[in-house]
Each structure stands twice: as C-alpha cells, then as structure tokens.
Design a protein around this nucleic acid. Structure first.
Lengths: 214, 214, 214, 214
DNA sequence: AATGAATGAGAGTTCATTCAT
DNA sequence: GATGAATGAACTCTCATTCAT
C-alpha cells in the first residue's frame, strides 16, 4: 500500500520533472531543436525512460500545451471568484490585464498556448474556452449598456487581438525598445475599451485619468 | 565581359530560384521539416550547389526573412507615394489597414518576418524600419492635434500591438470562427484609433460612421 | 498442499497461455515483429512475468518449436493406432497424406517445425523422430516386397522431400495459382510412391485408378 | 569523361560490394538480425552511405531477391541454348537436376528466392517465370506422348514440389544424416518422372538403369 | 560553377532483459 | 509470484555540411 503509493508519487513527480525539462528545452532552444535524447540527458535518465511516461514526442508536446492552457484558464476564471464585483467595464479591463500579465509572467506557457505551432484540431477547443471568458465579459458590458450597441463577437475578437498582440510582441521581441510595460499595457487596454464606452467622455483628460491604474 | 555578366545574371537568377523554392518548402511543409536536401532536390541541383550561394541553412533563412521584411516595408512606404494626402488620421488608418492586409495577403512573408523564430540581433533593425513608418504616422496625428496629447512612442507601440495581434491570430488560427475579416479589421483599427482622437465624438453613431470604410 | 498444487496448476496454465499468445503473434505479425513486450501486453501481464516462465526469448521460441513437433509426431503416430491395417503401401500413402494435411491444417506448426529458422543442434533429434515414422513405413514396404529392392534410407528421404516440398510451397506461396490441393497432393504422393511398386503396372489407367482416392 | 565513367564504375562496384555483404549477413545471421548498421560496418562505410545506393532496407532486400531469381532463371534458360537436344524426358530431368544443383551450389540465392520471407506481391511474377520453364518441359513430354495423358499443370506443380523439397531440406538441414546427395537427387527425380512415362517399364531394373546418371 | 560521394552526428523509437519492491 | 521502472544497446533513417573531382 505505502509502497504502491510511494511509487505512484514518484511516477507523478518524474512526470512533472520531464514536463518541466521539456518545456525548458522547447523554449530555450526552440521547437525545432528539441529532442527526446536531449530531454533524457537533461533529466539524467535513459532515452527509453521518457517513453514510459509519454507515448512519443508529439504527445509530450500536446501535454505541455494543455498544461499551459489549463494554467491560463485557471488564471482567468479565478478572477471572478473571491472578489467584490465592480463595474462590468472594470471587470473586462481586469480580465484583459490578467491575460497580458499571465503571458508576461509565464511566457513559456503563453508560447506553448499561442505561439509555438499551428494548433492541431483536437487542441482547438482549448482556445475557445479561453475566448469564452472574454466574450462573456464583453457581453455583459453590452447587455448592461456600459458599451454602445456593438456586436459582441466582433468586439470580443478585436479585444483579443489587442491583448494577444501586445503579449506576443513583448514576449518575442524583448530587444525592442519598448516603453514601460505598465504604460503600454494601460494604453492598449484603455484605448480599445474606452472607445467602446456608452457615454462618450466629455474630454480627453477624464479618459486618461481612467487609465491611470489600468 | 559579356560572358562574365551572363554568368553574373545566371548566378543571381539561381539565387532567386533557391530562395523561392526554400520559401515554398518552409511554408508548405513547415519549418521543422525543411532540409537543404529537399531544397536541392526541388530545384534539381546537388546539395552542394546551394552552398555556393548561401553559407549555410541559417544564412538562407535570414535571407528569406530579409526579403519578407523588404516586401512589407515597400508596401508601407509605397502608401505615401503617389496619392493625394487626406487627413493624418486617415493616413494612419490606411497604414494600419495596409499592414494587416499585407499580412493576410502574404501570410508567408508575415510569418517569416514576425512569427517564425525569435529574431537574431542583426535582424532587429528591420523591425525598426517598419515601426518607424507607424511612429511617423502617429507623430503627425499628434503634432497636427488630430490626436490628444498622447505619448507618441507609447501610442505607436500600442497600435502596432493591435495590428500585429489581429494579423497573427488570423494567420495562425484559421480554424477559429472569426467574424468577417473586414468587420474585424475595421473594429480593431477604429476602436484603437478613434479613441485617440482630439475631439471627443458627441455620440456613438458618429463614431461608428467614421468606421464605415476603415 | 492443495494450495501448492493450485499454484502449480496456475503456473502451468499461465505457461500455456504465454505459449499460445506467442504463437499467435509470431504467426499474425511475423517472426521479425514479435517482441516480449507485445507478448506481455497481449496476455496482460508485465514483461518481467514472462521471464518467470521462460529464461529468455530464445527458450520460448524453442518451446514453440517443440510443441509443434510434438503435435506433428502425435498426428503421425496416432495413424497406426486404432485402425484396421491395410497394405503397407496404403499405409505409407496414408502417412504421407497425414503429413501434408497436418501442415496445411496447422501451417503455423509446420512453419515452426520446418520453415522458420535453421534448427539449433539440440532440436535436431525432433526431426529424426518424425522421420523415423516415415522410414519405418518405407522399410515395411520394402521388407514385404511391395516395393522394389530400393534403398530404404534413400527412398525415405526422397519421399520426405516430396511431401515437404508440396507442404512448404503451399504454405509459403498461397498466391501462386495452384491446382486443387487434393489433386496436387494425390499427384505428388502417387507419382512418387507408385513408381516404387514391385509389380510394374500393365498400363497407365490402372495406375491412375489407384490414385483416385489417394 | 573518364572521370565520370570512373565514378560510375566505382559506384557500380560499391553497389555490388554492398549487395554481397548484405547477402552474407542475411544468410549467416538470419534475416532478423540483419541491420543496416552491421552492413555498413562490414563494408567499412558510414551507415548513411548505404542509403546512397538503396532507398531503405526493404529495397535492398528486394534487390537481393531479384538478383537471386535472375541467376536461377539464367541457369534454367541457359540449359536449352547451346546443346544437342535429346529426348523431352531427358530434358525435363536435366532441368530438374539443374534446379536442384543451382540451389545446392548457390544456397544463398535459393534462400533469398524461396526460403527467406513470404513473397510480396510485386515479386510474385518472378516465381512464375521460373515455373514457366518447368511447365514448358512437362508440356513437351506430354505433347510428344513421352508421358501419359497427365494434366500438365498438376504434374508440373508436383515436380516443382519435389525438387523444391529436396533442395530446401538439404540447404536448411545440413546436419541431418543425408545419404549421398547424388543418389538422393537421382532418386527424387527418377521416381517422380519415370512414374509418368508413357511406356511402362517391363521391370524395375531397367528403370533403375535409367537412373544411373540422372 | 557544379557535382556526387561521403560522413559524423543525431533524430525518434523499440527492444530484451534486470531487479528492487 | 508478480510488478513496473529502468536501462543500454540497438534499430532505421535523415541531416547539414564538406571536398575531391
């Protein structure tokens, strides 16, 4: 009993070790130059041992992607739980910020989820789950008339484009002379969201104020 | 002399042929499964011959990237030439539309330029050249007070994020149930740009009107 | 005691299960693609478990060969028991028919016994046992003057060649446009045996008649 | 010019070397334990070099089979050319002897052609070509009334069985206490062929005489 | 300028077998 | 008695690259 559970534990632990090492190689050296052998060497096991945990390279990769998506999803859904609700627009902004911040804090995850390879069919639904969160937030803004009568789907997709754009660029082009991340993120989110507001601001300064702590 | 120039011509021609074939394989079969051998086979030369024109695989790849950037740049700079100038804001929008449309019309070029691999140092400046165009357009909007007194650099970067976001997502995730590309592009561009306008709109309808032909 | 014998039973049973599964894989997937792992998977035991019953792959294979030989031998020796004896020549023909029919009905056994791999030394005696039966049948024909004064050993070997030839060809080359198996077997057996008869036939028709029901 | 032809020569030579080495390994160590690496090592080239001459292991194997068949066929067809014709029956016997002798003199070839692996579809026709020779010889015997009115196809197949049987057994079971090969071959051929003769012999001795030098 | 032969390295994967538990 | 983890060696095959010709 204890022996079995110990083994079980060890197995799970090793699986995690493998995934972590693989993620590291994938990200550090690029998908192309990842190899099962390098992975084995890194974890100091024989090449065959990896196959005790993953059927093949492809399955391992898919696992990494799934994990990354799961973490992104958890981050997004955790937002709603355990917090006093504010306005729908603020919630939306918070969601967008959470998205970008997740990407910047976990660039490997974001890479696996959105940047590394064209998605295979069976993985597609993961994207939908993440997008659903955003769509919901937008929908509420429109329904509660915080937004003009924009098309929910189009708007949600446009907002996704914006947050994905800034996230992926910041991750992939760290050498570019970006302005401060905070300002940039605020600019992206406020500009895109505020433009959708139902009540046009009377002047620009107000608008900018609302972006102070995005 | 003529013989020499003929040879020169032939050499350049062959170089072009190699690049075209390489691009084709990269795009059709994916980066991972590209190989110098397949390339040689495709152009019906020996593997060694490729090395007479490119030092190695890496250099060849860099050439492809450069070409793609060059085409993007040409598209953007061509905009300004040979057209009666309208308002700075319209020019900016036009530039952004041109950027997205270039990506959608030449997904391979866009992939090479921005999506395929983390950029090496010496390629970095290419991105700057492209970004300079955008910065210039934004700057003019600000200088001519079409925009509020936003920070030019921050704004330009935010706008770049938006157009890159929509372009890369549309390219990489063709299976996603996107709304019509036109609407989406319009939404992205208008939402982000109009929110920057100096004169706040009195109501939403006006704003929407300005998006009719983005 | 009972517990021990139960264990004993179980052990023998498992051994049989392993052999059966192994034979099945060998035959269905070919010798080359047999593996201890596949075997273990098929019987739903761990790879290591197989080694509790067989020292290694080689020994397991030898067991299969032995079993196949045993079945062939049993088929041949069963012939003599429980049947009214006819003429020695008929008995010989019956033996040859039994040999071929065994091979055609149990191609796997025949393959293991004679076709799969060059025999190792220690397995050699099995062939002798089977051949002994044939030699005995031939010897009786000669001793009882049903046959001309041919050399028993030479004749027996020649007859073996004939029956092995037709059996192995039919097994290994099922795609060849064979005539009806019955006719072919009859032809092989009659032609080779009748030619040895002590009393030359007066005409062909008689001879053919004797082949009607070979 | 000379350079090219030298290269060509060298290439052909190397191809022959590879085939010879491969044949040797296949036969000495068995199909299962043949490997491209062992082959490369044997010829003292890198593993990759073999692939410059053969697409893969399968193709190499097929080449060996084809070559072996070609040699067998050449042996059989050479028989008819350049020799004074004797009786059809003698020709048939000569053909059968040639078949067996080819197998015994070139056991590797015979193994590749008939014993090593179940034939693939596209190789099937090779067998037909070889069999055609035998069928022709039998047919002539029947047409010229040297044989009784036996069915040509059935008879040819039965004769094939006999010669294949003795050839394959002698090759595969060298440890068996065979009688002298000559006697055995004679016995097999005479017994099977003489039994088909149109004019029944008056006594056994005559028949045996005809077998003295089969 | 172009070739084709060659290589060493390395890819993913499977294997028979062992052994602590 | 049975397991599952582990390994080292082997497999087929592809690769980028070099170099004599």
């Amino acid at each position: 009993m204890s022996a079995i559970s110990h083994r079980q534990k060890h197995k799970e632990e090793l699986r995690r070790v493998i995934l972590a090492a693989a993620r590291d190689i994938f990200v550090r050296q690029g998908y192309e130059s990842f190899s099962m052998r390098k992975l084995a060497e890194k974890i100091e096991y024989s090449p065959g041992s990896v196959y005790l945990h993953f059927k093949n390279k492809e399955e391992l990769f898919e696992c990494l992607v799934e994990d990354s998506f799961a973490r992104l999803l958890k981050t997004l859904t955790d937002l709603r739980n355990g917090q006093e609700p504010t306005s729908p627009v603020e919630e939306l902004k918070k969601g967008m910020r959470a998205y970008v911040e997740f990407g910047l804090r976990n660039p490997n995850d974001y890479r696996f989820a959105f940047m590394l390879r064209p998605p295979v069919k069976k993985r597609e639904y993961k994207v939908h789950e993440a997008f659903d969160v955003l769509r919901f937030l937008v929908k509420r803004c429109v329904e509660q008339r915080c937004f003009r009568a924009v098309d929910v789907e189009t708007t949600a997709q446009a907002l996704w484009a914006s947050v994905h754009g800034i996230t992926s660029l910041l991750i992939q082009r760290p050498a570019f002379p970006w302005v401060a991340r905070k300002e940039l993120m605020a600019q992206v989110i406020c500009t895109t969201v505020d433009g959708l507001a139902a009540t046009p601001m009377a002047n620009g300064s107000t608008r900018r104020a609302s972006c102070k702590h995005p």
